[in-house]
Design a protein around this nucleic acid. Structure first.
Lengths: 338, 338
DNA sequence: TTGAAAGCGATACCAG
DNA sequence: CTGGTATCGCTTTCAA
């Protein structure tokens, strides 16, 4: 079984009886070639099963890269992959391909995979920051590789960012619970020391104060322990005297954990989750929803724009959230004397 | 704001006072360089923020590609992205990067993105076949690019495949329902004309016959209409006289649809889904589970193996499924006279 | 409209 | 152990 050679541009040129450059022109958009020769070239290319090598094309200094890198925590997280899906679609529509790399949400992982991606000479780098310091990317940025942070802004780095209106979303959820008659409203999240959560916690507290309620640490569970199971945390929260009558889950992980903890309760507290998830409607879970795919799409479009002009000013784009009532958030507080 | 140049291997060589080839050796594993010069080179590289260009490295004829392409239907489908996650992890562990491309489950899409990926000179191509003819990849395979089909075998192409024991899983589910006293057991899937479903339907029918029950078209809904909402199909199924007392959902989409249709029923039929999903335990759904991440991992490992030796014989690997009882599948048939 | 020659960044071959 | 030289596949001047 003989392994043949791959046909190159020169092979095509030879067969078509033209110069390599002419073949190149045929494949380059908006370069003039007489229709006659173009056809000769194309048929030769077809005969040889020629496929232009985009590696070689990108090699040239300042050559156009056709790839974009995306660094994410892990592919199994619904939020992450939905963002990835939005990115991929938007890129593909413009002829770019997506290289994904995951960090397992670890700080070392982030820098390591960034290195790999940059070695591939991606035209732009999209990332959901894990580390609280992206200054290691500054050299690359100065070299002209645009960096776009998603979901949380980059730290110590000039970069565009696409984030959510986290604070506003939290205010809306909290206000709705207050309007529903709740006074003891808990907020649970894990991890807590990330941008999205600090913003959401801030909104939660602001809304409490606006509603005439003093924020109380007893109702806050701001964890930073990847191993802490959310359902256990929720159970502990509800086991205290004077338990909260409503819970806001800071992300979908915690929300699913809360569902596990609440499923067997006779009169469960109200529950509002952050981030929508596929079976939330079946489960009747009220959430602060947003559109992760749209985040990805916007990030990809911005990346393409920046690749065209890396010197432009960077911006931070905030995407809206909206409260989606499905039942769990509309439960009234259990009557005290029941 | 001046855009600087990226440091090259030659720059590093110049600064370290050695030849380019020596720098190259430092970065190539298992090439002998005196520790003294190696250190000089590395410090020079660091000063210049040098990052080897893997594009240039792969350009050389027979050069080692560091990328693997994965063609999938769409990134939002839990099954697909879990597979992708397994692939990515396994690849990253060995220094490869993953390029993903999605087809929106369309036949034209598959060939189009395969083209893009091959233009990137991926070292191997993994795909979940959509088209029923992958012969368009044969040229590339002969050129030495291994192709690995996941979930369903490739058609008209010599390629490795990693699939599930679909038939066995369907037999197990059906047999369990029969053992539970069910006689009218429905099977619903959409799309139906894909390998996994034809296998599962076959297993379903075999198990019925083995249990002394004649397969009956009235209980089969083998759809091929992407727009048909699963919940409507289930409702229609249950509305007929003499409705089934148990339903097997051929994939997770249909299963979630079934949940929507069944949620308000007083005495819902038993339900077993194919494919596990995140909130299945919360919802108490019995499923024929498997491990999509493991499929991805195995596919990636096989790809790496084949890249090292593309002339090896191809194989088909079957991965096990297992019935996970969670309640919905254990419901007894409603008493006829209730 | 077409072609010749140089070069992108790294590696392999063969000497030293 | 180290260094020249050709080369991978394509694109960009600059001429013709």
């Amino acid at each position: 079984m003989s392994v043949q050679q791959r046909a190159t541009l020169d092979d095509v040129a030879r067969l078509a009886g033209v110069s390599p450059k002419t073949v190149s022109r045929v494949y380059a958009q908006r370069e003039k070639v007489s229709p006659d020769t173009a056809e000769r070239v194309l048929s030769a290319a077809k005969r040889l099963r020629f496929r232009p090598n985009s590696l070689a094309r990108s090699l040239r200094r300042g050559g156009v890269s056709t790839t974009v890198g995306f660094i994410m925590g892990e592919l199994r997280n619904p939020f992450y992959y939905t963002v990835a899906s939005g990115i991929e679609k938007a890129l593909a529509a413009q002829g770019f391909t997506l290289i994904v790399a995951t960090t397992d949400d670890s700080v070392e992982g982030e820098e390591r995979v960034a290195d790999t991606l940059l070695a591939q000479r991606v035209g732009a780098l999209l990332l959901i920051p894990v580390s609280d310091d992206q200054s290691y990317l500054d050299g690359e940025r100065q070299l002209g590789t645009p960096v776009i942070a998603i979901d949380r802004p980059a730290r110590n780095l000039v970069a565009d960012a696409i984030v959510l209106e986290n604070r506003r979303g939290a205010v809306e959820a909290t206000t709705a619970l207050i309007a529903g008659g709740h006074r003891r409203i808990a907020y649970v999240c894990n991890p807590a020391s990330v941008y999205t959560q600090t913003e959401r916690v801030r909104g939660y507290r602001e809304a409490l104060i606006a509603g005439g309620i003093d924020p109380d640490p007893r109702w806050e569970r701001l964890l930073d322990d990847p191993t802490a199971p959310a359902d256990a945390v929720i159970r502990e929260l509800l086991d205290q005297p004077d338990p909260p009558t409503a819970i806001i889950a800071g992300n979908n992980r915690v929300c699913v954990g809360a569902l596990r903890a609440l499923r067997d309760l006779a009169s469960p507290p109200a529950l509002i989750g952050f981030d929508d998830f596929e079976t939330a409607d079946v489960l009747g879970v009220t959430v602060v929803g947003h559109d992760p795919a749209e985040m990805g799409r916007r990030a990809a479009l911005l990346a393409i724009e920046r690749m065209a002009d890396p010197t432009a000013f960077t911006t931070q784009i905030e995407l809206p959230t909206r409260l989606i009532p499905r039942g769990s958030g509309e439960r009234p507080p259990a009557t005290e004397t029941a």
